[in-house]
Amino acid sequence: MKIKNTTALQLILASALLSTPFVSSAEDSSDVIKVIDNNWSSQKVLARVAGALLEKIGRDVEIVPADTQGQFAAMGTGDLHLQMEVWEGSMAASFSKEVDAGRMADAGSHTATTREDWWYPNYVEEICPGLPDYKALNDCAEKLSVPETAPNARYLAGPVDWHPEDVERIKALGLNVTIVNAGSADALFGELKSAAKRKEPIILFNWAPNWVGAAYPGKFIEFPRRDDENKCVTDPSWGVNPDMANDCGAAVGGYLKKGVWSDFSKTWPCAYKLVENMDFTGEMIDAAAALVDVDGLDHDEAAEAWIESNQDIVDSWMPECSK
């Protein structure tokens, strides 16, 4: 109860602080910072890199496993504090719900961008030479079909709620495609593994950066490019289909953000500076994941190794207040 009352007090103080310039000399609280640990390699290594750096400036850190679904509620209540990878494509809705409610804050974007869209392993081009152009989907619909979708091509999508606009995109672009929804990432790549072994045609949902790209080289299908103002979604008259919206692909350079609990910056102002400074490029993320997926290190060792080999970058992230 006592702790909660101080939080209330902090909230009042915080609202007062908002009108005054930020004071960086404020002391960090000694509370443990809980960093989210998801279940894919790059995120796990990034979380541990962040954990190690936060420990370096004197904070206590705990790495807590959480799934991508429940984590935002937990960050909203202040049970978890830092997520190093917030993906635009699959997490934007949950993330912005918490940010809009004032329970989470955006701690800036990484240089790395993300892409999430329809994808195929390279050998599919031998079966359907018109790829990666989306029009080829109709030309080889039959070849890309399975009995229960025939004569339509089969597109193995993620769970329904990841990209609900797929249904409309198929209609707007007049594609002869039937969506089959996989229930999880495991299901997507389990099937990819099986198909790739037999060089069977497969079109599925994928994202980059992802370990899958290294194991199974492939390409995204090129749909009409989405415009910057997102008119493709908001304005039916935009694009190849004048009557319908969503006649374009997903954003090519989706954000990859760091998300924190709303009170993070007040509770640990110096640690917050560090989190803000942390900025991974696509290559840095790939290298971090490869330490695990290719070199076979465990996630703790990979984080250590990554910090060692990127010492200059890490030093440049260290904020003034920690020196």
């Binding site: 429940g70 769970p159 929804n181």
Partner: peptide, 21 residues
């Protein structure tokens, strides 16, 4: 659990609800 494979039943509804809190 089977909805993690990919279904259109109540399991999928629950998983969808979890991702949107």
């Amino acid at each position: 659990i089977a909805s993690l494979i990919g279904t259109q039943d109540l399991g999928a509804v629950i998983n969808g609800a979890r991702s949107g809190n």
